[in-house]
Computed example of a mutant assay.
Amino acid sequence: MTNSPESRAAGKRRRLMSAAARVLHEQGIERTTIADIAKAADVPVGNVYYYFKTKDELVQAALNEHAAHLAQLTGELGKLPDPLDRLKALVDTWVGRRDVAARYGCPTGTLAAELDKRDDGGLDLEAAKVIRLLLDWAEDQFRQAGLPNPGDLALTLVAGYQGMSLLANALRDPDVMTREGARLTRWLDSLPTESGGAGLT
C-alpha cells in the first residue's frame, strides 16, 4: 500500500537525502543546519533524528545521493554504442548544468574540498570514493575505445571538469563551462587519430 507507515517513512527518508544533497551543495556544510535540510524536505525537524542522528550522517546521505545520480547518469550514457560518444555525452551533461556550476560549483567536488579541511579523516574519504566512481567509469570508456593509458586519460577528463566547474563558480561565469566543455569535446575527438598522449589545445 502506497500510504502505509513504511512507505511514508521511506518517502521522508528519500526527501531528506535529496534535500541534503541539494542544500549542502548550495550552502556548504558549515552554513547548513539540520533545520535547513528538514525545511527543504518538508519534514518536521524533530522527525529528522529518526532517520539521521547527526549532520554528518546527512552529509553521508548527500554523498550517497551523488553516487546514485552518477550511477543513473552513466547507466543512461551506457546505452550509447560508442564509448567516446558516451564520454562526449557526459561532457554535454556537464555543460548543460553550467548555470548550477557557476553558482555553486561541482556538487561532489565542493563537498570534497570542504570535507578535506576537517580533521576527522572519514567523510573526506567517502567524498573521494564518489569521485573515484567517475574516474573508474571514464577509464573503462577509454579502455573500451582501445586507447592506451586509459587511467591517465580519465584523470585528464575529470580534472578538466573539476577545473572548469571551479573557475565557472569563482568567476560566476557559466560560459566557462561552455568554452571548456567544447575544448574537452575537441580533445576527445582528437584521440582516435592520436597515438595515445594527445594534449588539450
Rank of each mutant, 00 (worst) to 15 (best):
V48M: 09
V48T: 07
Y49C: 00
Y49A: 06
Y49Q: 04
Y50G: 03
Y51F: 15
Y51T: 04
Y51D: 04
F52D: 00
F52S: 01
F52N: 00
F52R: 02
F52T: 00
K53H: 13
K53M: 06
K53L: 10
K53E: 14
T54Y: 12
T54S: 15
T54M: 12
T54C: 08
K55I: 05
K55T: 05
K55H: 09
D56M: 06
D56C: 04
D56Y: 07
D56N: 15
E57G: 03
E57H: 13
E57R: 14
E57Q: 15
E57M: 10
L58S: 05
L58M: 14
L58I: 08
L58F: 08
V59M: 11
V59F: 06
Q60R: 15
Q60D: 15
Q60H: 15
A61P: 04
A61V: 03
A61D: 08
A61I: 03
A61M: 09
A62V: 03
A62T: 03
A62W: 09
L63M: 13
L63K: 11
N64F: 03
E65I: 00
E65V: 02
E65Q: 14
H66Q: 13
H66A: 02
H66D: 00
H66W: 13
H66L: 07
H66G: 01
H66T: 00
A67D: 13
A67N: 09
A68V: 00
A68E: 12
A68P: 03
A68L: 08
A68I: 00
A68T: 02
A68H: 08
H69G: 00
H69D: 06
H69Q: 14
H69R: 15
H69T: 02
H69A: 08
H69Y: 09
H69L: 09
H69E: 12
L70H: 08
L70Y: 05
L70P: 00
A71D: 14
A71L: 09
A71C: 05
Q72R: 15
Q72V: 02
Q72K: 14
Q72S: 12
Q72W: 06
L73I: 03
L73Q: 12
L73H: 10
L73N: 03
L73W: 09
T74G: 01
T74N: 04
T74K: 12
T74I: 09
T74C: 02
G75F: 10
G75H: 14
G75W: 13
E76Q: 15
E76A: 11
E76K: 15
E76M: 12
E76D: 12
E76L: 11
E76C: 02
E76S: 11
L77R: 13
L77C: 11
G78M: 10
G78Q: 12
K79C: 01
K79S: 10
K79Q: 14
L80W: 05
L80P: 01
L80D: 01
P81Y: 10
P81T: 04
P81S: 10
D82V: 04
D82L: 10
D82S: 12
P83D: 08
P83Q: 11
P83F: 05
P83M: 07
L84H: 05
L84V: 02
D85L: 10
D85P: 01
R86Q: 13
R86S: 02
L87M: 10
L87F: 05
